[in-house]
Amino acid sequence: MDFYDKDLVSIRDLTKDQIEYILDLSKKMVPYARGEKVKRALDGKILGNLFFEPSTRTKLSFESAAYRLGCDVIDVSEMSMTSIAKGETLADTIRMVDAYCDVIVLRHPFEGAARLAADVSENPVINAGDGAGSHPTQMLLDLFTMKEAKGSLEGLNVTMVGDLKYGRTVHTLAQALANFGVKLTLVAPESLQMPHDIVDRLKRNGCVPKKTSVLEDVIGDADVLYVTRIQKERFPDPAEYQKVAGTYRIDNAMLRNAKDDMMVMHPLPRVNEIATEVDSTPHAKYFQQAFNGVPVRMAILCAILGGDI
């Protein structure tokens, strides 16, 4: 599978076969991600980790993935610390960083930033989230988490709940799941439902999602419940945020009608969408999901930089 020197910007850069290749490689990475085995497959390489928007898991798991493979990391975490604060364009910043490293990981508040970076960079660019746009590495680790828990993605009933309008994670994940013949259920207030253009794309790929605003009506059918935070920072109008904040809360009472092996996922951070009492139930898979960021990102870095495991 030829990933060497390729950009990973959007779900559109990946075929179903490529997704499956990364998921298989991720599985091989698990003992290395846990530190049970050691191989410096990317010794001598440098990762430029550019985070122009807050992140904990994505940034740290890319760093961890790089270090586990012997790859060095240079990073920027705040726009105010860069020449962008002096008026430098992102394109110029990327050209400069490109000269200092072998691969660029970019998180940016504007949609399309990673594609622009890929256009101007000689080295490959990995999108670590661009505004409300794509987050392909999160999508891959979400698929990996589902596949590891369920054995296969084919035919799963995946229910997404929360902010489906602004949440980049669910936009990317829904499109990826459409490749695997899943039954998709979208639970959100009308004002936060999945954008029409994404739903249209799902339909063109043969996935007709079921939409509802009442989680209780559909939770019993779900194999996977994918919960997202209603993100205050994505709302142009604070009054609109207040109207929908706290609409859905997953607690043990809500899970009473769920299948025994139904898994609850969340890209984290959670605020109060999932009660802490759920953490100790077999349903909770969100911390496993967060760990999976490391082996999946190791697989992506290895595939793109040509590391051998």
């Binding site: 364009t89 992102l90 504007f110 399309g112 622009l116 505004g131």
Partner: peptide, 15 residues
């Protein structure tokens, strides 16, 4: 031009 105001092409980049 892109109708998405948050698109990078609407943010003064040389693109």
């Amino acid at each position: 031009r892109c109708s998405n105001p948050n698109c990078i092409t609407n943010k003064g980049e040389p693109v």
